[in-house]
Simulated scan of single mutants.
Amino acid sequence: MDSLNILNVFVSVAETRSFVATARLMGVSASAIGKSIARLEERFGVRLFNRSTRSVTLTEEGASLLERSRRILAEIEAAETEFSRTTAVPTGRLKISLPLVSDPFIPTLARFRKAYPSIELDLTFDDRRVDVIEEGYDAVLRSGDLPDSSLTYSHLGKYQMILVGAPAYFERHGIPERPSDLKRHTCIQFRFPNTGKLQVWPIRRDDQEIDLQLPTSIVCNNLEARVGFATEGVGIAYLPDFSIRRLLNEGKLLSILEECSESGTFKIMWPSGKQPSPKLRVFIDFLKTNLFAANSPD
């Protein structure tokens, strides 16, 4: 088991490129990590890392050992997962990063906690892009494209982005009949926290997307604010349907310009080369079944 622990240390240093980051993840000192790597290098009689004051990079021998180590650890994880599924109830702590959104995550997570009381949830709600490995997350939930090739992912479900406004707003300003009418309306826009760029609204003419310079009447960096401003009748917002389904059903928001709607997909992502632990496996399966009751692609 000591050999396996050292291999885990080696893989973590190779992935984070940092003794300090690995020490932080494993709850030990950077000196202890350095000694473990030194013992491994002595055992194999080769240098595994090139070290400098700024970075740690793999040597050719280190890269070869990394590939073998990942295979060995993946096989052991697979065996543990297979045996634990039949012998034990999933337990332990799950550290998960989620977008800064209440619905449908909060109700679904509450049901998961009731179904699996032995699993502790350490949840961070944040729209920024996180480093799953370096920050020690078991998994991250996000929409859009896969941002990192070092992550494995599974689809959780689809949603629809739609343009909406409050009835009171449309009574005062009229309902846009064509996309170009939006230029004369108050537009509640979203700025991505990671890039500082504004979200592009899918404005189309004759099935062709056009670059329409929309007013930046209000700019927000989170979903809840945009929902709130739209509901208060301040202007028109481009929102995911799951966040406003109740408001649409109650008539507090109205959908407009259906040709400008666009579909999206939520994914759960975790470090590649690793079989999901039993606790993460049941978490993934539960979300796929419950987060979006319909339209789960997997």
Rank of each mutant, 00 (worst) to 15 (best):
I256F: 03
E135W: 01
R191N: 07
V200A: 12
E232L: 11
G144T: 05
A32K: 06
R43Q: 06
V227Q: 10
L247D: 05
E120I: 13
T91H: 06
E171V: 08
E258N: 02
S97G: 14
N50L: 10
T195P: 02
S97H: 15
P297H: 01
D127P: 08
G273R: 00
C220G: 12
S277T: 14
D131R: 06
I188D: 06
N221A: 13
V219F: 02
I175K: 06
T87S: 14
K183E: 13
S149C: 01
I210Y: 09
F286A: 00
A230G: 00
H173E: 07
S29L: 00
P215A: 12
S3G: 12
G273I: 02
K197T: 13
R93E: 09
L109D: 12
E80Q: 08
V219Y: 06
F125Y: 15
V46S: 01
I133M: 11
R68A: 14
F112G: 01
Y238L: 07
L287T: 02
E42C: 01
S18C: 13
Q160D: 13
L66T: 04
I188T: 08
V11Q: 06
R113K: 03
V11D: 06
K279C: 05
L4Y: 15
R71H: 14
R51V: 12
A237M: 14
L7N: 03
F192M: 01
E80S: 05
T265V: 10
D138S: 08
T16N: 10
F229W: 11
D181N: 04
S261K: 08
S277E: 11
S263Q: 09
R71W: 15
P193C: 00
G62T: 09
L4T: 09
L280R: 03
T186G: 07
P107H: 00
T124L: 14
Q189K: 07
V13Y: 10
I188V: 14
P179H: 10
R24W: 10
I72A: 11
R51W: 07
R85E: 15
G92I: 14
I37Q: 01
N8G: 05
R111P: 01
M1K: 04
L141G: 06
P176Q: 05
N295D: 15
L100S: 11
D145I: 11
N50G: 05
M26S: 13
E224K: 02
A88H: 06
A168L: 07
K279Y: 05
A88N: 00
N290A: 02
T265M: 14
V282P: 10
Y238K: 03
E224M: 04
A88V: 02
N295A: 08
P99T: 09
I162T: 14
L223H: 12
S36L: 01
A294Y: 10
S64C: 08
P202I: 11
D126W: 13
R43S: 03
I210T: 12
A78L: 09
L66N: 00
S84N: 04
G92N: 03
C220Q: 13
E262Q: 02
R281H: 08
R113C: 01
G264F: 15
E258D: 08
H173M: 09
I76M: 06
L65H: 03
C220H: 12
S97T: 07
L151Q: 03
S154Q: 12
E259I: 03
R128G: 12
L48H: 02
D298L: 06
E177K: 09
R113F: 03
K158Q: 08
F19I: 02
K158S: 13
S296Q: 09
K183Q: 15
T186K: 05
P193E: 08
I210M: 11
I210P: 00
G165Q: 01
F192S: 04
